[in-house]
Write a protein that binds this DNA or RNA. Structure first.
Lengths: 153, 153
DNA sequence: TGAAGTTAGTTAGCATAGCTAACTATATTA
DNA sequence: TAATATAGTTAGCTATGCTAACTAACTTCA
């Protein structure tokens, strides 16, 4: 019981405080932006999976599940929904009959890009009050965090 | 059709680019951190509502729904779940019989703080690779974004 | 004062999204 | 070729979001 927060070294508590604020801010930011996606008619999980396909090329179901950090049964239903909406096309792997290749249809690409446009423009419009210096600061720290994510265990 | 992105002024495209990266980074960051919350046995919506109560004091159901940007029926079920787990206590408003006052129990405060500790420590541990300057940069831009959120339309 | 309207919250019913356990079908290996 | 491993699906649970329709309580005002 001797290792309380207040006894940690200053760097560690600074990290803790930043992590706390960062976490809370990210949650609230996404909660706002997410509402823009309702217009697409597809849920967040489907849009996110579709985005992986559009920007990362065709994937098997297992690859998609791994990319989205979700279990295969969950991705199975997400892909089924996307296929039902004709946003992805599924073909069998000629080498391995168990595998499927999932790729976006033109309709899927279009829907994703339009939704992305809406969402990002909405977010961007709220960044309009920032000074160029503040915007640059946000941009730099976003890249720092993106690097942290790439090196995530 | 003449107002394409490529014809917008430089400041506007800078905002757009930052918004895009920010959005994607926030999504992936939260997806990682969220897994730590599973240990608490409560879902994200309940933990988030409980957090509002712990840090913001007692609220009515409507106030909680507004704070969480969710419709009343949704919050009704979230609160019912928290009450079932004995994490909040519900009392009638003596002034207005329609209203309820929702407040965290000691058990609720404890669970939230422990979960928060776990989650934030996990996130903080991944910020350990940052230099003090980088950490400061992230801290500053987080505050900039928090301000943007406060002024959100 | 009492009928009409407003407000707070609930109930019912739908869809999405996450999970585990148990299954099928195909490949691989001993 | 028989046993095992891998890819994906199905079934069934929980949680979270919504709208529509409801109940109960408060407010207004003729």
């Amino acid at each position: 019981m001797s290792k309380k927060i207040t006894r940690q070294d200053p760097e560690s508590s600074a990290r803790f405080a930043v992590a706390d604020r960062l976490h809370s801010t990210a949650i609230h930011l996404l909660r706002r932006v997410r509402k823009q996606d309702v217009a697409s008619g597809e849920g967040p999980a489907r849009l996110s999976a579709l985005s992986v396909l559009v920007f990362g090329g065709p994937k098997t179901l297992g690859e998609l599940a791994a990319a989205e950090q979700v279990k295969p049964p969950t991705m199975s239903r997400i892909v089924a929904g996307l296929a039902r909406s004709k946003l992805v096309q599924i073909t069998a792997d000629p080498q391995d009959g168990r595998r499927m290749s999932i790729r976006p249809t033109p309709k899927g690409v279009k829907l994703l890009q339009e939704g992305r446009q809406r969402r990002i423009e909405y977010l961007a419009s709220h960044l309009a009050g920032l000074t160029p210096a503040e915007l640059a600061q946000v941009a730099e720290s976003t890249e720092i965090l993106a690097r942290v994510l790439r090196n995530w265990a």
